[in-house]
Write a protein that binds this DNA or RNA. Structure first.
Lengths: 192, 192, 192, 192
DNA sequence: ACTAGCGGGACGACCCGTTTGT
DNA sequence: ACAAACGGGTCGTCCCGCTAGT
């Protein structure tokens, strides 16, 4: 009844994107063929190619979708101090990493499969990382951190390491290490 | 110079591994076919399958080779204090990451392409990471660090983040962030 | 101007035929898909299948349309002696062959793509050729040629060679050869 | 036992070319898929791509093969006067055109399916036609014809028309027209 | 009656990892 | 050690039916 987003053709395209998101994240991009995506989406092959020029474009949209989802999740965080927000972000990452089905960071994984830095997929990855770093920097600055720029770099590095370790090591152990590391990066709380 | 038939077909196998290492690391595992590997190695297809049961085994050996190479590199480090050795390890990582041809960590990239945790490739990855963490822990303990276990976890996390960021961001910026982070992890030098 | 619903769905069908004519002639029949035709015609897929049972029928109509166009062009020739009319027909062919966009004879090209002599497309081709030969024969007879039947066969052969050569060789050279050939076929003008 | 041509790998490649020649000529280029060719050749798919970079290259080789065959056939003609040789060439064309399986000129048919004049296939067609015209010109010159150049153009045009008409009309009728036309092009025999 | 889009199944060219003959 | 064979899989396009929505 309600036409929240585009009035027409919502389901088919969305189903393709859903299936792509699920399969690409869970198994990787190159091993998942178009045929499997359209099969899981319950979509004809031609309708897929009506919505996406090719597989690469679908991959790019898969990443932008992921990025949009993360931005929305951050925007939906309960209001809190910048420092608490930062801690919440990393804590939530740990929660995700402990849940079943976690497979690391979609962007890092995609970068592993697309070596060419000029490839559109890599461009989408860069854009997401610029947003991430900007988010950290703003929160640090709002927290009154003396060197938000460089500390944002450090947080990005911690985030990447966290995303990787949560996938490859014991999530509980990684959680402890990450939160401790975060504390050392942020320094003692500003006694305001 | 050499006899008609060398005692063991060493060079053929080694050439295959060399080509695999180069191609797998530079372009990824799934996109590189065995035909290209044997072509670059200058080896017949049958000789390849004489030395390796299949492609997956080659991938596993590619990772163990990488691991052996890193262990040898660490063993060849000039004698120094544990703390200096740790710093050297991370500094060398930054050097590699700034060099052209850097494509991130071979193990992290491989994990992105092999989701199944029970796969032999993932087992090889786990083994390398266990060695890495053990190395950190021993060096920390030798340095007299009070909590070598947990600090080793943190170092592993920093290492992973470093390997990823060096590939995706500006190496110089990442280097500064990583070394600063390392300093905060190791704490003030033990005034011995 | 026109009523709400024109008595017959003329425009849609005509647009499809126009697009088909343009694309089929310029690029060939098999390489041009139905989707491209309906896209260029600005017509829905269903509308296409409402007017044509299938692609093959469209091809047949494309040829009958071509044939009708040529018949109309001949009928519209300025009044002249039969011999002048014949010369005009071949001269106009040379003009077309020198123009950009010339791609040979639509019927010869279609025959190259439809080998089965019983195929409706081939039937349409045969019909056009029968008309052509009849036209030549009548003009020759009207000119008082002693052997109109066999000379018409020769003219048809020259026509086909002309249509092919204009596409594959230099039009200017071909024109000279064709007109010279035509003169030899027609023989000296009847000194009436 | 005997290694007449290349010592190795003769059969596979030759079988592919044989099948391609048969199918392409009989049915057209675009309608015949690679799969059918390799099936009729009894060859593995990869073997095909080991010998030919792609289908287009096979098409080009199909035409060069055809051209080579025609050149050999002309070279194998019994010694005769130039004029007799010319007549023999056109007579043999008529014989071929009357035989079952005749499908017109392979080059004209191929040109109908490859509109782009810069395409390698068109280049091969041009080359064959240059040879053809050169052959006519030399024979005419050897016969003492006063204008071999322009007459060669006319012969090429007649040849093309003949090849087309033999496919589309009654071969017997076409034969008579073609030989009569040839006589008019060559003029009265030089009473030497 | 025309548009827009989806579903379906076959086929297009091309490449995969692997095994076999020679 | 080479080429060929094998079976299946890759992405992408084919022609055609059908169902809504104005």
């Amino acid at each position: 009844v309600s036409a929240a987003t585009p009035p027409a053709s919502r389901p088919a395209r969305a189903r393709v994107l859903d299936a792509a998101l699920r399969l690409f994240y869970a198994e990787g991009v190159h091993v998942v063929g178009v045929d499997r995506i359209i099969a899981e989406a319950g979509v004809a092959k031609q309708t897929f190619y009506n919505h996406f020029p090719g597989k690469d474009d679908l991959v790019r949209e898969y990443l932008t979708e992921q990025s949009a989802w993360q931005r929305a999740a951050v925007a939906a965080l309960p209001p809190a101090s910048p420092r608490e927000t930062l801690t919440a972000i990393f804590t939530i990452m740990c929660d995700f990493g402990a849940a079943s089905g976690y497979r690391g960071c979609a962007f890092i994984n995609a970068a592993a499969e697309f070596p060419d830095p000029a490839h559109p997929v890599r461009v989408a990855i860069d854009e997401h990382r610029r947003w991430l770093r900007g988010l950290y920097r703003e929160l640090l600055a709002a927290d009154g951190h003396p060197d938000a720029e460089r500390t944002a770099d450090m947080l990005l590095l911690v985030r990447d390491g966290l995303a990787v370790c949560l996938d490859l090591d014991h999530p509980a152990t990684v959680r402890a290490a990450a939160l401790e590391l975060l504390a050392r990066v942020l320094g003692p709380a500003s006694t305001q």
